[in-house]
Design a protein around this nucleic acid. Structure first.
Lengths: 243, 243
DNA sequence: GCAAAAGTGTTAATTTTACACCCATGA
DNA sequence: TCATGGGTGTAAAATTAACACTTTTGC
């Protein structure tokens, strides 16, 4: 990562990414636990390089955290309150971690970076839909762990991230019917049942099997492939793939 | 307006406003013509004060240009390409206006402001819906005129504004069915026919009168008021108002 | 053959569309 | 009383929802 300065990055602008995955009939979100005393959970943020398109920046940040390319991304909202929750939180964090990390602020470099980092920020929210199996979350210097958390069990998040998460979830629910993007939560090939289970999970309601199948096929975005023999003693379902 | 500096405003972030109005069965957009040699048309942009919420900034910019408060605003997209069309355009503009405006760059203040102004920008797009009759556009030091232009006749715009305008129009068309916001283009009290004409204008298609009435009333967002005697020799239509 | 689950089809319910009819208004 | 356009109701069409029937799979 380049040095945090106005020369390298656009100041006072962050990209906040809400990364959704799906497993065991649960919608999950990737949270990082901060490498500081206390239980602090965060979303994945980054900054925009001076020479870089906004969408490129979002992709780069996502790739850094998840380790793979071609992620489905959707920009959903900009957050820009002037209450500097960011600085409040970070000041308190540094304070309570002073004994171990006292060097953090004494070095000139870090002191400049800290000032840069704690200014009031505009944050641009993106959500990402990924196939969990293809993601291998990567730690940064600031987090001690990075884990998938079911959306019903998301703990309190730091700074303004609670709001970002809630808005991302709302955006996902309204987008999914028009943008046909739920398939991005699945592997390349999938059965109709898997699609239905995702929809049922996201909307927290059940759909009639036969009608659901019609509705999805009428979207005309899937192609039918070979059958998948599951070993179960029943008819084998067809596999589908995005056209 | 405060001096353009990092101290007063968030650097490299602009708010671009697309202001829609409606008149004579036409959807119009408010454009400003720049006070420079040549025919240059622009949308309405502004910057975010350091102590100001993002939405407040958008409101302020809109109020400055239109002269009234309580404008219906919707944030629709962020634009962030790194190609600096902004600087390219402004350099060329200054160049071609050099003889008259040579002082512009020689004063230290302006030179600083110019450097600030021509950096690479992230721009946050908002669209506004207003009752044209209540708007009295106000000139800034940079525009020679500010006028309503039917959306079919919008000329080429400077910088990246063509894209912003097109995206705003697309956002308006997709929003209007869910957000019930078309009424903001009309005066406080209006007839059903006026609503229908707005819809027909925006979607460029006709609706059956009786079915349209049902659809709008089923939204359950309007209250019926007294009749309006128009003087026409036919039944007087009811007036409606947003609940 | 049987149970389980997937694929397909059929009918009922609901919503949308088209259109007809009646009513108020001013000449 | 007539022409005009607004308000309301009704029948047809289309879409959606509910559910039944058939097929495939492994034991």
């Amino acid at each position: 990562m380049d040095v945090l300065s106005d020369k390298n990055y656009i100041p006072q602008v962050a990209i906040d990414c809400v990364i959704f995955g799906y497993e065991n009939r649960q919608l999950k979100v990737l949270l990082s636990k901060l490498a500081f005393k206390g239980n602090f959970y965060a979303l994945h943020s980054g900054f925009i390089k001076q020479e870089e398109d906004l969408d490129e920046a979002a992709k780069r940040i996502l790739e850094d955290r998840t380790g793979f390319q071609d992620i489905y991304l959707e920009q959903f909202k900009v957050f820009g309150r002037a209450d500097n929750k960011r600085k409040q939180f970070l000041d308190a964090l540094i304070q309570s971690n002073y004994s171990e990390d006292r060097k953090f602020l004494t070095e000139t470099n870090n002191s400049n970076a800290y000032a840069w980092f704690t200014k009031r920020f505009i944050s641009i929210g993106y959500y990402a839909l990924v196939d969990m199996k293809r993601v291998s979350p990567k730690l940064t210097q600031f987090d001690v762990s990075i884990d998938w958390c079911p959306i019903q069990e998301v703990p309190e998040l730091i700074m303004h991230y609670d709001e970002v998460f809630q808005e991302a979830l709302a955006a996902l629910r309204t987008d999914i019917d028009h943008k046909f993007n739920a398939f991005n939560l699945l592997p390349e090939k999938f059965t109709m049942k898997e699609v239905q289970q995702i929809y049922e999970t996201i909307f927290e309601k059940e759909f009639t099997r036969s009608n659901f199948q019609k509705k999805i096929l009428d979207m005309d975005v899937l192609e039918r492939l070979e059958k998948r023999l599951t070993g179960a003693k029943n008819k084998a379902p067809y596999l589908y793939r995005l056209k």
